[in-house]
Design a binder for these strands. Sequence first.
DNA 1: CGCTCGTTTGACTGGTGTCAAGCGCAGTGG
DNA 2: CCACTGCGCTTGACACCAGTCAAACGAGCG
Lengths: 249, 249
Amino acid sequence: MDLDIATRHRNIGGFPTLQRSDCAQCPAAHAGFCRLLREPSPSRTAPGCSRQLARAQRNIYVAGQRLDGVAVICDGWAVRYAQLPDGRRQILSVLLPGDAISAAALVKSSLDFSVQALTETRVCHYDRTALRARLAGDPSLFDELAMLFEAEREQADRSLTDLGQRPADERIARFILQIMQRLGARGLTQGLSFAFPLRQYHVADAMGLTAVHVNRVIGQFRRERLLECAGGVMRILDHDALRRVANIR
Amino acid sequence: MDLDIATRHRNIGGFPTLQRSDCAQCPAAHAGFCRLLREPSPSRTAPGCSRQLARAQRNIYVAGQRLDGVAVICDGWAVRYAQLPDGRRQILSVLLPGDAISAAALVKSSLDFSVQALTETRVCHYDRTALRARLAGDPSLFDELAMLFEAEREQADRSLTDLGQRPADERIARFILQIMQRLGARGLTQGLSFAFPLRQYHVADAMGLTAVHVNRVIGQFRRERLLECAGGVMRILDHDALRRVANIR
DNA sequence: CGCTCGTTTGACTGGTGTCAAGCGCAGTGG
DNA sequence: CCACTGCGCTTGACACCAGTCAAACGAGCG
């Protein structure tokens, strides 16, 4: 019933993905949260690691739910979001392979946001107790962990500035370029093309806009030949011009 | 030349403040970051603590500047903000007594935001090396520290949701109520009145609005007798109605 | 074939920004 | 003591970006 994850990913553009589901083959094992646990002694599997597959559109985690460890996105895309009682939703961040859902799960047993899979997603759970034991035995991990926390906050600050100060076209251009840059750092781009499984309404919820307006802005980008996007694949056609719209530098 | 800090604070409403400038008398010493360092062994002064006075409107810290430890606001108000090259500014958070400017300074020697004093402000600096020694000797501090990091991120998530999803009046009402609640937790309110040294343009920069529009919304609140504000003092007249505008609960 | 779902487009509305002028107060200096 | 000045608040007229509503289109799928 579940599609093989590689097959599923081929559907959204044929970009690099995993064939195996153990940490040894996992590219995410050498980045972000997982790297911390594997270096300097790369045991084959980090302590207390168990796995979960989530189908596209399914919730990986729902706000308030009990959590017994830190979850990491090993493969696939997800969004972290806050849901308001009246149905409004704010996407707080996009999670790419290697991203921990939140390092805070180390010290909190429930979180105040939810996480939804955008594609078929493989999630790795590190047991909190095991993690903390590991941490106690290796105090040098503290720095790296603190930097992870800090990176989350810095990203939140940037998003806040984008939403507060930038007009729609600037926001959207920055959003796309940032995704590209994060994918590039993971070796998940092919030149100026990359998988982009987000729907326009996801971009809207992330940028505090409506889907209709996102459509107009992206339509404009397309007409100006800044980018193409279709079938879950984004291709940047005029990088410099898009950076100019994004007001980078 | 510098006004005595108590005198200065009397100017903005006669709300509780400090008379002395040592940790023993500091109410902030038992909250937030400072508490971590003092409990369970409340030595009179935490390791490596030195002090600084900042006049109103002065920058306490400028983005990129070298930083050799964690700074805590002991007394007074400040804002943490990001400055864009074209002059736009986003206030990322309001710092109240007891708030660390950023726990991240434990592991980074420069930060990507600036901090400006709103009132005469007393800032306490904890030396990084001493802090880290303290941390190494007391691993239980890790949890509390992680919770501080997490609280910063949770606040950022809430702000992001406010800016992305809520209209101006809702944002501003929430902002004011949140300030009141944070002051209340510190015993710095008198019933429904409290010091509010922020200018309307500060509120604007925090909420991603213009000062003119903030003025219109606050004028509306005033006309509806939800609140009064003048001379740096805010008084909530109709708490329930304001909470309704803020869409709380 | 006829759903459903996401995209696209158009017409219109409305919330927020922009520009500009005036006001009041506090500080300053003659 | 009183102009003068600067700054923040207030208000009005107007512009415009983005939201709303509605309809049509196309792709995927059962």
